[in-house]
């Protein structure tokens, strides 16, 4: 990607940060592909491996390999995470690998906002916003749920959580996360 491209590509909030008992960072732009296909589609596992380097995730799981990942979104939908600049090539690879198979692969990198919530008590921030039992969140589990009034998905990884929501509500979600992380409002 040229420098000119870099300056004109902006994530939803331009990398906003907030700190409290947990730290919040908006990251991105992050490459993402929505891949719709049933798990038994011929060549699917190979196609996903070619793009993300991971195996096909089981239900409600996300497989992470370095800066790439493949998450299970629904029985016929996967979320492929990869560097923003790699998306076009990845879509071409998917088209090639899945040629002739019923599927839909589409770039959604720009439709999303991605946040990192970090710190020992990062989970408490999510406990204030999502009706999900975090104590039952398993390692490598991708949880799609409600974040206050909007849809979101998150998974635990080193030092905290990664949370994905729609781009248009990035400001709202940043507001939620920073309110929920305010010092003095620790839950336990």
């Amino acid at each position: 990607m040229s420098d000119a491209m870099n300056t004109r590509i902006t994530s939803a909030l331009g990398g906003a940060v907030a700190s409290g008992f947990a730290s919040i960072r908006e990251i991105g732009p992050q490459g993402m592909i929505t891949l719709r296909a049933k798990p038994d589609v011929k060549g699917l596992a190979a196609a996903v491996k070619a793009v993300t380097g991971t195996k096909l995730p089981e239900a409600r799981r996300i497989e992470v390999a370095g800066d790439k990942a493949a998450g299970w979104m629904s029985p016929d939908e996967y979320l492929l995470v990869l560097p923003y600049a790699d998306v076009a090539a990845a879509l071409a690879t998917l088209a090639e690998e899945l040629a002739g198979q019923h599927h839909l692969a589409v770039d959604v990198s720009d439709a999303r906002a991605v946040f990192r919530i970090e710190g020992a008590d990062a989970g408490q921030v999510l406990m204030k916003l999502a009706p999900a039992d975090l104590s039952e969140l398993e390692p490598g589990e991708l949880r799609r749920t409600r974040i206050a009034q909007v849809a979101g998905a998150f998974w635990a990884d080193e030092g905290g959580f990664t949370l994905v929501c729609f781009r248009s509500v990035a400001g709202y979600v940043m507001g939620l996360l920073s309110h929920s992380a305010k010092p003095g409002s620790e839950l336990f």
Partner: peptide, 11 residues
């Protein structure tokens, strides 16, 4: 029945 999540009504 698809993802196994015990979802509360607001989800």
């Amino acid at each position: 029945p698809y993802c196994g999540v015990k979802a509360e009504e607001t989800e």
